[in-house]
């Protein structure tokens, strides 16, 4: 019990420090999430237009996913140096898989008869995408988005190992200075952030499913 109190004590004493890390963490992951979503959805759509592109993109993304995240961070440090930029690039590359895959799967799994009747009624290619495919794929795409967001928040803690700030700083400092309370305090905040955002996204996902699929 003493340990728990010491952690709470630590939050009280150093709340400004934690608040700053918390904001840094949110900022880093938010930027990463926006970039991942844009690139991921575009790549996912490109994949649905060409079988060859689909194979190439999926192979590359899967390959990247097999690299341990810590190694990926290290790799980018050697190219873009220490700091925010390297962390961001690594987070983006690592987070692409769920969103690309779900966009691709979501769109390709739209009922082919719906597509056929839409085309038969004179829908252009872009109208097909915006009015039929994307709306119907939205529940699947959003499920991928939710996975990606949680993953990026958690991974963001490792980003501080290459000097990008965020709650990982507290964890890292706790480890290197034999200060377990600090490590736990940092980890708890990462977990808290992930859980709250996940609950929030879960509610949105449910609403989207209800609106589009009726279940």
């Amino acid at each position: 019990m003493g340990f728990v109190f010491r952690v709470i004590e630590l939050y009280k004493e150093r709340w400004e420090f934690f608040l700053q890390l918390f904001i840094e963490h949110i900022y880093l992951t938010f930027v990463a999430i926006v970039i991942i979503s844009v690139i991921g959805i575009i790549l996912g759509i490109i994949m649905t237009r060409s079988k060859t592109m689909a194979n190439i993109i999926m192979t590359v993304v899967n390959l990247i996913y097999t690299i341990p995240s810590i190694a990926l961070f290290g790799f980018f440090v050697s190219i873009t140096g220490i700091g925010f930029k390297s962390a961001l690039i690594a987070l983006v590359i690592y987070g692409l898989l769920p969103i690309i895959r779900n966009t691709y799967v979501g769109i390709t799994e739209v009922d082919p008869f719906l597509i056929e009747s839409a085309i038969g009624m004179g829908t252009t290619n872009s109208q097909l995408l915006y009015k039929v495919q994307l709306p119907l794929a939205l529940p699947v795409i959003f499920a991928g988005f939710r996975t990606m967001v949680i993953m990026t928040i958690a991974l963001g803690a490792i980003a501080s190992f290459i000097g990008a700030g965020g709650l990982g700083v507290a964890i890292w400092r706790g480890i290197t200075t034999y200060f377990p309370e600090m490590t736990v305090a940092g980890s708890l905040l990462v977990a808290l952030l992930a859980i709250i955002i996940d609950l929030f996204l879960g509610v949105i996902e449910k609403n989207i499913r209800k609106k589009i699929l009726g279940t």
Binding site: L114, S117, A118, M121, L136, I212
Partner: peptide, 20 residues
């Protein structure tokens, strides 16, 4: 082709109503 299709009604067995 787009104009041609818009100038015809098209009904299929699977109906193809948009669920959303």
């Amino acid at each position: 082709k787009i104009e041609l299709r818009r100038s015809m009604g098209y009904v299929i067995q699977q109906v193809g109503l948009f669920p959303h």
